[in-house]
Structures are given as structure tokens and as C-alpha cells.
Amino acid sequence: MADQTFLAAKVLLLEHDPVQYPRLLEFCESLGLVSVPCAAADAMDALAQHKDLAGVLLAEDLPCDAPDSLKLAIALHRQRPELPIFLRRTSARPLNADESRAVTHPWASEDIGTLRAHIDHSLFGLRYPTVLVNGILDLSLNALRSMFPNAEVEAEPPYVVHDRIIYGQVSTLIALESTWCRGYMMLQTEEGALRQGMAQGMGYEGVGGDLGFRELNNLLGETTNLIWGAFKNRYIPPQAFATQQTQVPIVINHEQKYISFGSQDPQLCIRYQLTDPRRPRQRPLIIVQRFIFNLLFEAEAFTEFAQPAATATTGELELF
């Protein structure tokens, strides 16, 4: 894995073995994986709580209400079929059709190299160059601090996700197109938290009070447009036109808070925390940013494009 490649992800860890558990924790840390350990009884609740996962690490002999964890694997797959399940096999019995559909990445306990290959291929199918992630952080933080001048804005470490669950109730979507990428950027947040943050004065002087949902929509839309403009100025040359003009349907299920861009590639995700320095105990406003390059992404072409600006000052990327 090259130093110029950004890698980080969050995985659900369902493991109980006293030897394998610390081994997998160390393995996850070495790859930049943030593990979320939980027991079998809490797996579905953890799945509902964490809407930004990249995959599931599951032990076949995990203590469950069944002889093994395959029924749990099927339940997890039915709930979030976009999440790859990496099953640590502890038996030699063949998997049936339902189990095989749920578990696409089995590996033997003694063969962690196979797990490494599965994760490298599935979780990190797209390589996001560090200089690109640095630049996105830099321009996004500048835009958010401009739109919310009275808030302290910090970014959590970026990561990749396979989940397609929408965060909050307010989302924006804007297209991105260059010679090296085609896709979308999303901003997502909770309507109530955004309204409260504006009422407390995080925005410009005189902007706040009892804002309706239209005003809040416009506010997030203006923030999205500001980030897009900075992205366009930095990464999209005036003569840039992608040669591949294919399109895929975007599927949105409002009841399930689910959105699909027709691609299984991992998405780049960054969470921003906006806090009021005058109210340190107040819950922060979270704005989630996703980059979905579902139509075209060529890291090599971006590297060539970014070479002249390689010495430019960018924000620092803090890896796990």
C-alpha cells in the first residue's frame, strides 16, 4: 500500500476467541480500520446505530442462538446487503446458497493473508490519493468556517464507507465532473441540530431564530455550492470534459433513508463537528460529507493533474 494512498474504514467486529480477538484488533489498526466490537446479541442494534460502516468481521463459531453464526450473517446481509461480510471459518462444512450470498469473503483462522487480500480488494477498491484528501479537507473546512463564522469547525479523520444509509433529514447533492472523475458530492445533517445551531448564532449575524425547513435547505445548499466552487477551482481545469458520458440511475428510498448511486465502490466520507465555543456542553452539529465517484475515478490521472500543485500548502491529514 503506497504512502500516497489514503486508507481508513470502520468495520463491525463480531469476534470472541481470546487469541483471534486481540490479533484482529492489531490487524485492523495496522490497516487503518476502526473496529467496532460487539456481541452477537447486540449485532443488529450496532448495525442500526452505525450507518457509516465499510464491512463486518464475523467469527463462524461466535456464540449465538444457533450452532454457528451463519444465521446471523444472513440477517446482517438482509439488513445491509452492501456491506461485505468477512467470515472467519472454524468448520469445513460447505455453505448453502443463502449463506454463500451473505458471506462473500470467507477465510481460515490461520490464513490472515487471505483476509488481508479480501479487505484490500473489497474495502479499498478505490484508492484516494492523500493529496486529494488533504485538499478536500482544506477547502471544505474553509467553506464551512466561512458559512458558520461563529462556530468552531473540526474534521474527524476521513474514511471510506460501503453503507448507503443517509445521515439526518437534510441532504444536498451536486455533480462533480473532470478529466479524472465523474460523480457527486453530498452533505447530510440533522434538521433539528442545524436549526438549533443557527438559533444559537453559529452563522452570520442576524441569521438565526425560528428558521423553517426551506431556509435550512437553502443554507445547506449554499454551503454545498461553496465547497463545490472551491473543488472546481482547484481540481477541475476549464477545458476538462470527461470522455465517458454514461449515466446510472440514482435510487432513493426515503422510508429506509437509503440512497444508491448504482456502484459498489467505497465512498470517501468525512464528518465535520461544529461546536459553539460559548456553549461547550452543547451537542455538536454534525455535517457528513461524501464523495461518490460512481461514473469515473482515475487516481493516476488525478496524480498527473495535481503534479504542478504538489508543493502547494494543504491541510494536514491525520490517519488513525
Rank of each mutant, 00 (worst) to 15 (best):
R145D: 15
R101Y: 05
Q239L: 06
S91P: 04
L173S: 13
S140F: 14
M198F: 02
R182E: 10
L219S: 07
R278F: 10
P237W: 03
V160C: 13
N217R: 09
P149E: 11
V131L: 03
G197S: 09
V207T: 01
F320D: 13
A59T: 01
N233Q: 15
R290Q: 15
L268H: 05
L87E: 00
G201R: 00
I286C: 05
L187I: 02
G168Q: 06
F291C: 03
V161A: 07
P18C: 07
R279S: 08
G201M: 00
E255I: 10
R101S: 04
A143Y: 00
R127L: 02
P84A: 00
H118P: 03
P158Y: 06
K51T: 15
E156S: 07
T189S: 09
P308G: 11
A75G: 09
V34N: 03
G262P: 03
Y235S: 07
V248A: 01
A46Y: 08
L115C: 05
E29R: 02
I236R: 05
I74K: 06
F86W: 01
I292K: 09
S260F: 07
Q49W: 08
Y272S: 02
D61A: 15
S140Y: 15
S109H: 00
L13H: 10
L141E: 01
A306Q: 03
A92D: 07
G212P: 10
A54L: 06
A97R: 08
E190P: 09
I250Y: 09
G201A: 00
L173T: 03
Y235H: 14
H254R: 07
L144R: 02
I166P: 02
A230G: 04
G192A: 13
C181Y: 01
D61I: 01
F148A: 10
G315I: 07
L53P: 01
F302R: 09
I250E: 05
G32M: 02
G113Y: 11
Q4H: 13
E190D: 15
V161N: 04
Q188I: 04
V36P: 04
A40W: 13
V288W: 02
Y204D: 14
I287N: 03
R283Y: 07
R182K: 13
R80Q: 10
L13S: 03
A54F: 05
E177Q: 11
M186D: 04
P94W: 03
Q282E: 14
S100Q: 15
I166T: 06
N96C: 10
D17T: 08
L76N: 04
T275P: 00
L13P: 09
P22Q: 12
T114V: 12
A48H: 14
Q196P: 05
S100C: 07
L87I: 00
L144P: 01
A66P: 10
H121G: 10
P284V: 13
T189A: 10
N294G: 06
V170G: 08
D65E: 05
A73N: 12
L83M: 04
L319W: 11
R279V: 06
E156G: 01
A117M: 14
P308V: 11
A199Y: 11
D265H: 08
P238H: 06
N134R: 11
L139S: 09
R283K: 12
I292W: 14
G221H: 00
G125T: 14
D98P: 05
A299T: 09
Q239T: 11
A151W: 03
